[in-house]
C-alpha cells in the first residue's frame, strides 16, 4: 500500500483543528473543483484534495489515519502497524494483506463497514473520463482503449484496486462536448447495488486545417486577388479528400462559402456543413514584372477600397 500524506495535501499541520482543515479544504476546492476550475490537472488535484478531506474531516477516520504513523513520504510503500486492521479496518481480524489496497478505498470502507457488512445495496463507482479524438475519428467512428483502476471488495471485505481494460467503440458522429455512456462499466456494485457507469466526455483534438463548431466545420480559403476578382475553381480540402469549389467573381475577404453536408457527420444521420472562409492573400515577394503589372492596374483602376471613409468623414 502506498502512503499518502493527507495533511501535506491540504497544506495543514498534523495538529490542525477541524476548522483549519475545513478552511484549507474550502480554499483548495475553490481552486481545483473540476466544475469551476480551469487549472491544468484540476480534476486530479481536486481528487487528491477531496480524498484527504474525506478522511481528515471525520474524527474516527482521522484517528485511524494518525495511527498509521507519520514517518513516511507520499508514495512510499508501507504497512499499517500490527493490530491496526483489527482496531480500525474491516472487522475480520487476523493477518490481512494490504497489497493492491488504495488508502482512499480503505478509509472509505471504514465508515462503510456497517453498510458493507450489512446488506444495503451500494452502487458501484461511476467514472468520468475525457476522451480526446481527432476529427477524422469523429467522422469514421473509432475504438478507444480504456484503462481503469476500479475498487472491488475481496472475500474478506477489503477493498482492492483491480485494473480493468477494454475498448469503447464510438460510433461516427461525435462532436465537441458530446457525452457517451457505457452502462455498468464503472465500479462493481455491492450487495446487489447497480454497477457504476463509465461516462466519456468527447474532446476534439485541434486540427491543422479545420475548426469545428458543433457539427459545422470551418476552413480558411486563401485566394489570390485576381481569383477573388475574376472568380475561380479551386480545390478545397474536406475531412476525407478534396472537392472543387466554384468561387464566384467579386468574392470578398471574410465571405463564407458553404459546402453542404461536408462537415462532421451527425449521430442520427446527415452531416453538418463545411464553411470556407475567404481570405485574400498577396504575394510577399513579387517579381519586378509582377510589380509592374500591379502598378499598371493601380494607374488604370477607379476602385477605391476606402470609399466608406469618405461617406463618414466629410
Amino acid at each position: 500500500m502506498k502512503y499518502k500524506d493527507y495533511y501535506q495535501t491540504l497544506g495543514v499541520e498534523r495538529n490542525a483543528s477541524a476548522d483549519d482543515i475545513k478552511k484549507a479544504y474550502r480554499k483548495l476546492a475553490h481552486k481545483y473543483h473540476p466544475d469551476v476550475s480551469k487549472e491544468p490537472n484540476a480534476k486530479d488535484k481536486f481528487q487528491e484534495v477531496g480524498e484527504a478531506y474525506e478522511t481528515l474531516k471525520n474524527p474516527e477516520k482521522r484517528a485511524a489515519y494518525d495511527q498509521l504513523g507519520s514517518g513516511y513520504q507520499s508514495g512510499q510503500d508501507f504497512r499499517p502497524p500490527p493490530g491496526w486492521e483489527t482496531q480500525f479496518a474491516h472487522g475480520g481480524g487476523g493477518q490481512q494483506s494490504f497489497e493492491d489496497v488504495d488508502l482512499a478505498d480503505l478509509f472509505a470502507g471504514l465508515v462503510g463497514r456497517g453498510a458493507h457488512a450489512g446488506k444495503f445495496p451500494i452502487p458501484g463507482q461511476d467514472f468520468e473520463v475525457t476522451a480526446q479524438i481527432t476529427l477524422e475519428q469523429a467522422t469514421r467512428g473509432t475504438e478507444l482503449d480504456i484503462n481503469l483502476s476500479v475498487s472491488e471488495y475481496d472475500e474478506t471485505g477489503v477493498p482492492r484496486r483491480v485494473p480493468r481494460m477494454f475498448k469503447a467503440r464510438i460510433a461516427k458522429g461525435a462532436s465537441e462536448g458530446q457525452r457517451l455512456r457505457l452502462p455498468g462499466k464503472g465500479g462493481k456494485g455491492v450487495n446487489g447495488g447497480r454497477d457504476g457507469d463509465l461516462r466519456l466526455n468527447i474532446k476534439l483534438a485541434p486540427h491543422p486545417l479545420f475548426r469545428p463548431d458543433g457539427h459545422e466545420l470551418y476552413v480558411d480559403l486563401t485566394l489570390a486577388p485576381w481569383e477573388a476578382v475574376l472568380g475561380a475553381s479551386v480545390e478545397v480540402p474536406i475531412l476525407e479528400g478534396t472537392v472543387r469549389l466554384k468561387v464566384p467573381a467579386g468574392t470578398r475577404a471574410g465571405q463564407k462559402l458553404r459546402l453542404a453536408g461536408r462537415g462532421l457527420p451527425k449521430p442520427r444521420g446527415g452531416a453538418g456543413d463545411l464553411y470556407a472562409i475567404v481570405q485574400i492573400v498577396v504575394p510577399t515577394h513579387p517579381s519586378e514584372h509582377e510589380k509592374e503589372l500591379y502598378r499598371k492596374l493601380a494607374e488604370e483602376t477607379t476602385f477605391d477600397p476606402r470609399s466608406h471613409f469618405k461617406e463618414v468623414v466629410k
Binding site: 477494454f166 475498448k167 469503447a168 467503440r169 460510433a171 457525452r179 455512456r181 457505457l182 447497480r194 466519456l200
Partner: peptide
C-alpha cells in the same frame, strides 16, 4: 483478449423519471 463495448449516445432523446434521476 480485450473486450469491445459500444458506447451509447447520451443525448436529448433519453428521458428519466425522478427516481431514476435520483439513482443516477
Amino acid at each position: 483478449n480485450i473486450e469491445i463495448y459500444q458506447a451509447e449516445w447520451f443525448d436529448e432523446h433519453q428521458q428519466f423519471s425522478l427516481a431514476e434521476l435520483a439513482d443516477l
